[in-house]
Design a protein around this nucleic acid. Structure first.
Length: 269
DNA sequence: ATGTTGACCTGTAAGC
DNA sequence: TGCTTACAGGTCAACA
């Protein structure tokens, strides 16, 4: 569900309620998410959350003894509510702060995760991630250099977290359309100039989506329950069979790596 | 090594 | 009205 913009919107929404606040309780109603929630996560109770950060699509609640790591998977959502608000179906975890707020993780499909990381036990999930697309680490020629001799489709390539993080299916489709690149092309056969354009497009589309509060397709919402408004700016995602916004030809809807891929055979080469 | 596929799980919509 | 199938924002392990 959430790609980088939606995770960042969630981070911005929960940060004021968590940062510099003490954790009073971590209540687990369903420990079996993507992985079993470790008992060590209870080490957060009694600690002060020093910072709320993000790496890739992982949210990081940092305290002195360790970091609570939250991933929203495909259907996860975070809300901040007053303590005692009624639980709803698929509320799996709640974190209660000394300010009387309850952070709720709701995740119908349970592909999300809650993990605990310490200096002694770094998480493998965070170990081999590529650069953050909205920082200097995502260099202009990074994609070009990494793609040489790669035969996989360029869409699969930019969705690979080892190459660059945070580009999920929505924004991969959008960025490739905006760059005029056919998503089926082998990553290794694309020019340096086109990768520079794609790099810039990935930066701008992600930043724009964050500005708009993310993309709400069905169930994503901000921590205050409000939807994001980027869905109305989507050019191709979910628009298969409709006219291309640029040339009016019918948009193709195919599968690449088991993910729906929408593109224009005229505008994307 | 690289590329591809199945698996995890629930909800919803479409087709018969 | 059912029942079955396909698909959905992600990622990881197991294969060829």
């Amino acid at each position: 569900m959430p790609e980088l913009p939606e995770v960042e919107v969630s981070r911005l929404g929960i940060q004021p309620y968590l940062e510099n606040h003490q954790v009073v309780a971590l209540n687990v109603f369903q420990p079996q998410l993507r992985w079993l929630i470790p008992n060590e996560a209870q080490d957060l109770v009694g600690e002060t959350i020093r910072a709320v950060k993000r790496r890739s699509k992982y949210l990081l609640l940092e305290s002195d003894p360790g970091t609570l790591v939250i991933h929203l998977g495909m259907s996860g959502n975070l809300r901040v509510l007053p303590v005692g608000s009624p639980l709803v179906k698929h509320d799996h975890v709640e974190l209660i702060t000394s300010a009387g707020q309850s952070l709720r993780l709701n995740d119908p499909r349970r592909f999300g995760a809650v993990l605990w990381q310490t200096a002694d036990a770094p998480l493998s999930q965070l170990a081999h991630l590529g650069p953050e697309p909205l920082t200097e680490d995502f260099a202009d020629d990074h994609l070009y250099i990494k793609s040489r001799n790669k035969k996989a489709a360029v869409k699969t390539f930019i969705m690979d977290n080892r190459i660059v993080v945070g580009v999920g299916n929505i924004y991969a489709n959008e960025a490739l359309f905006m760059s005029g690149i056919d998503p089926r092309r082998a990553a290794g056969g694309i020019s340096k100039a086109r990768y520079r354009l794609l790099t810039e497009t990935i930066r701008t589309v992600l930043a724009r989506a964050i500005e708009q509060g993310g993309t709400t397709l069905k169930d994503f919402s901000r921590a205050d329950g409000q939807p994001g408004y980027f869905a109305q700016e989507l050019a191709v995602y979910g628009q298969g069979g409709k006219p291309c916004p640029r040339c009016q030809r019918v948009l193709d809807d195919i599968r690449i790596g088991q993910r729906s891929t929408v593109f224009c055979k005229v505008c994307q080469t």
